[in-house]
């Protein structure tokens, strides 16, 4: 666990940089985390995914998987990889301020 300052706010993060408390998140913090992770600008397409993911987490307590995102968010899986390179579900979760998805064991 560590703390880091994004958009001028001190945030508690887990070992991999995920927000400990989703309630601390703001869109400005999301933009700052994105920039620190190689995404300088968040487009409308990014925000569709980020809002969908965050709302799903807040209403169900769990983040959707990549394939769940592809089926339900309106953004196909291939595009998810373009928007959030390498691990879209993980990176999008980090940017939208929710815990690391644990759907895969």
């Amino acid at each position: 666990m560590s703390t880091n300052s994004y958009a001028g706010v001190d945030l508690a993060l887990d070992g991999e940089g995920f927000l400990q408390d989703p309630a601390q998140w703001t869109p400005q913090i999301g933009e700052a985390i994105a920039a620190a992770n190689g995404i300088p600008v968040l487009t409308d397409r990014h925000w569709i995914v980020l809002h969908f993911m965050r709302n799903t987490f807040l209403s169900t307590g769990d983040a959707p998987s990549i394939r769940g995102l592809g089926k339900e968010s309106g953004v196909p899986v291939k595009e998810l990889y373009q928007l959030f390179p390498k691990g879209p579900a993980k990176l999008a979760a980090k940017i939208c301020g929710i815990p690391k998805p644990h759907g895969c064991i």
């Binding site: 998987s65 990549i66 394939r67 759907g103 895969c104 064991i105």
Partner: peptide, 8 residues
């Protein structure tokens, strides 16, 4: 291909 899978 993707997670989750049976018997990882």
């Amino acid at each position: 291909t993707d997670m989750p899978i049976k018997c990882p």
